[in-house]
Nucleic acid binder design. Structure first.
Length: 778
DNA sequence: TAACAGGCAGTTTTT
DNA sequence: CTGCCTGTTA
């Protein structure tokens, strides 16, 4: 009697499902049925007797985790999932482990009720630190400082270690900031995204008991998209598996049941610290591990696959693997050159509309369902390299009445009014959270100004109390004006009223999260503030803010309905249990902190999806349009310095192509308006690597709005030279602001600069990429 | 203290 | 073009 779990699998797929004991590496090419294998494997494990709670599957996005959970549930029934099967993201898992064990582990930095700081919070905090260290924000852009710190953390380097390695002035300064930043996080009882991983890795490494508990529970470990793991994730995986991770010297418990799935050709997170070597070295890390390659593609037509395969062969640092399909036929891939981004957008929108109307799509490979009626909107997508490209497309789709969504899961929570409301909630959940406190202490204005805050901060630091508690005694603090004092007293009273002075008991304290959110929105004065704004300005966007606040309350209500307290990790000691409302609030805030852009793509919305190439990974669509195939955009200008960067860009392009099942349109605009400036572009070198069989057309004549001469062929590999080559020493240039000048020195490299002596304003050093210079002596 | 104007700098991808 | 930061004024 054939097992229905195995019946429709290919031989390699079947092998991967059946290999349950001992390490397993599955190299799964794009579209090779990876998710199917993973879910069947989990189902098979359960069928053959593994308790669901002993299985841990890790993904990178909530969406991937959700899908996996759903598919397992449909194979086994909801019951199995309910019996403790853990399918979650790395970051969620770490957050949960830390909530449960952080205090017991004596990590020092955080307690179980910590707040997760997102990029905006991190920026606010690092700015404070920079100010305190008297470093100017222009010389030390918070963004770059944070990315240096993040890189260190991803490499599991803490502040003391970083300081120890810092040799030059730059690193030494970063080390000082890193140290203070970490101290500030500790004071705020907060962890940034990277900390979630770093602290978990440290905890599992240092605490054999906790590690043992985890290993004891999760006997089967499965990790998806393994090619995108960074060092911290790699170490966590190794420690959970019970293997000897990263040379830390632990004895493997036995041969660990760790199964990793990935595709080196789809590694696109190198910039975030991911290292392909984690997957490439898996075999040597776990000697005797089984390796299974899934090469047959079940997703795309032959022409699409051929383009993808030809392109990716241009990568030199690569283990070749055949990508093939048994199906023949299919429409050719279309490459279209347009005059500019507006024509490009129009072309994409026309293309989508034509497919929707039913021209052509069903005539693909035999065996495909003939969709004479056209492609549904939800089966189409538009991909772009950078978010900024979405605007023109969006305008065009809206104008032509095509329904669409932009996959920007985080956008809602980034809005000013939402961040304000959430900041209040976060202060309730974690009174030490200074970033949130400072954000709303005077929002809406209640008379607390900079001077008042300054005095309060000094006092709090001196007396070693939390700022919120310092506010309670504002009357006794010297240097605070009466007006400020009044505002602070009101502020504290308000928070106390919401929390029952921290007890979450008493009259007027409900157990409902939605009620709490509603009270906060109203009683904080946010609602009134935005109402007033909407009335005076009468603008649409101000009215929208009020709607958004209501939507936030609804989202809290929704979360509350779905929340399962029993599924939460209890504290290590039951007597530490927080009031139910507080636990609910923290879980809610955590879920918000960990949403990703990709999470918001709901396949059932019946609309075209627009998203970045990064967000597209793991998805598939019947028809895909990829725009902006231009030098500087894809490959991105920031990523063509090294071969490694360039190859990652090529993989990104590969990922985009391989999302398409039946139709693929790739566009490149000859001119593009950048920051209000029309620029001529060079077609992406990748177009020249698509191989034969693509259908190329140049439609730029039809859309030409300006009389700029067209030169040259569609594309040829662009000369790989930086902008500095265009501005030799001595050349004359014009700058929109500084006027005429002469180049006196040039430095090539990442950010090529030139020293230019201007006739009127003297010598200036400019970054060529942004300087908007024009040669005037040619 | 709050609101506003004007100058300036920065441009990727995200858990 | 945008958003951020600074400085000015009521």
């Amino acid at each position: 009697m054939p097992d229905p779990l195995l019946a429709d699998l290919t031989e390699p797929q079947r092998q991967a499902v059946l290999h349950t004991e001992g390490p397993l590496l599955v190299l799964a090419a794009a579209g090779s049925g990876k998710t199917r294998v993973i879910t069947r494997r989990i189902a098979h494990l359960v069928r053959t007797g593994a308790p669901p709670w002993s299985i841990l599957a890790l993904t990178f996005t909530n969406k991937a985790a959700g899908e996996m959970r759903e598919r397992v549930a449909s194979l086994l029934g909801e019951g199995a999932v309910a019996r403790g099967l853990t399918v979650t993201t790395f970051h969620s898992l770490c957050a949960r482990l830390l909530r449960r064990y952080a205090e017991a582990a004596g990590l020092g930095q955080i307690r179980g009720d910590f707040t997760i700081y997102d990029t905006a919070d991190q920026t606010a905090l690092v700015k404070k630190v920079l100010a305190a260290l008297e470093l100017s924000g222009t010389n030390w852009p918070p963004r770059s400082v944070l990315s240096a710190i993040s890189a260190a953390k991803n490499d599991l380097m803490d502040a003391p270690a970083f300081a120890a390695h810092a040799g030059d002035f730059y690193s030494k300064t970063i080390a000082r900031v890193y140290t203070q930043y970490q101290k500030a996080l500790t004071a705020a009882n907060a962890a940034d995204f990277d900390d979630l991983l770093v602290l978990t890795a440290r905890m599992l490494r240092e605490r054999g008991d906790i590690r043992g508990e985890c290993q004891g529970r999760w006997r089967y470990l499965l990790i998806d998209e393994y090619q995108d793991t960074n060092r911290a994730q790699f170490v966590i995986a190794g420690l959970l598996a019970g293997g000897a991770a990263g040379g830390t010297g632990f004895q493997p418990a036995s041969t660990p049941n760790i199964c990793v799935v990935g595709d080196p050709d789809q590694a696109i997170y190198g910039w975030r610290g991911a290292s392909i070597s984690n997957i490439l070295d898996f075999e040597s890390q776990y000697p005797g591990c089984r390796v299974i390659k899934l090469g047959e593609n079940f997703r795309s037509t032959a022409p699409i696959l051929s383009v993808a395969d030809t392109l990716i062969r241009s990568n030199k640092i690569r283990k070749h693997k055949d990508l093939f399909t048994k199906r023949a036929g299919g429409q050719p891939v279309e490459v279209v050159l347009t005059a500019d981004e507006r024509q490009e957008a129009r072309l994409v929108s026309d293309w989508l509309r034509a497919l929707h109307a039913g021209s052509g799509l069903g005539k693909g490979a035999p065996g495909q369902e003939a969709t004479g009626s056209g492609t549904a909107w939800k089966d189409m997508a538009v991909f772009y390299r950078t978010n900024s490209l979405s605007r023109v497309i969006e305008d065009e789709l809206r104008a032509s009445g095509i329904p669409y969504v932009i996959a920007r899961g985080t956008a809602f929570y980034q809005r000013e009014e939402i961040r304000n409301a959430l900041a209040y909630l976060r202060v309730i959940a974690n009174p030490a959270d200074e970033v949130s406190l400072l954000r709303v202490a005077n929002t809406p204005p209640r008379g607390i100004g900079d001077a008042g805050i300054q005095a309060l901060e000094v006092h709090a630091a001196r007396t070693n109390v939390r700022m919120l508690d310092a506010m309670r005694g504002a009357g006794d603090i010297p240097g605070i004006s009466g007006r400020s004092r009044g505002g602070m007293t009101k502020f504290v009273a308000m928070i106390d009223a919401w929390t029952g002075a921290g007890t979450f008991m008493g009259a007027g304290i409900t157990g409902s999260l939605a009620d709490l959110a509603a009270r906060v929105v109203k009683e904080s004065g946010l609602e009134g503030m935005y109402q007033a704004q909407a009335k005076t300005s009468g603008s649409e966007s101000d009215a929208e803010r009020l709607e958004n606040l209501n939507e936030l309350i609804s989202s809290a209500a929704e979360f509350e309905l779905e929340y399962d307290a029993a599924a939460e990790p209890g504290p290590a000691h039951p007597e530490d249990a927080a009031p139910p409302l507080l636990s609910l609030l923290r879980a809610y805030l955590e879920s918000i902190s960990l949403v990703a852009d990709a999470d918001m793509t709901d396949p059932d919305q019946g609309v075209v999806t627009m998203m970045t190439l990064h967000a597209a990974k793991g998805l598939e669509f019947a028809a895909v349009a990829m725009v902006g195939l231009e030098e500087g955009l894809l490959p991105h200008s920031r990523a063509r310095e090294s071969d490694a960067d360039l190859e990652e860009e090529r993989r990104l392009c590969f990922v985009g192509i391989t999302r398409a099942m039946r139709r693929l349109l790739v566009t490149s605009a000859k001119h593009r308006t950048n920051r209000g400036l029309l620029e001529r572009t060079i077609p992406s070198r990748f177009l020249g690597e698509f191989g034969p069989g693509v259908l190329v057309s140049d439609r730029s004549e039809e859309g030409a709005r300006h009389a700029l001469a067209d030169d040259g062929p569609g594309w040829s590999p662009s000369p790989a030279r930086g902008p500095e080559a265009q501005y030799p020493i001595g050349s004359l240039v014009r700058h929109p602001q500084f006027g005429l000048g002469q180049v006196v020195a040039v430095t090539a490299g990442a950010a090529a600069r030139a020293d230019i002596r201007f006739r009127d304003v003297g010598v200036k050093t400019l970054i060529l990429e942004y300087a908007r210079l024009k040669r005037v002596d040619l």
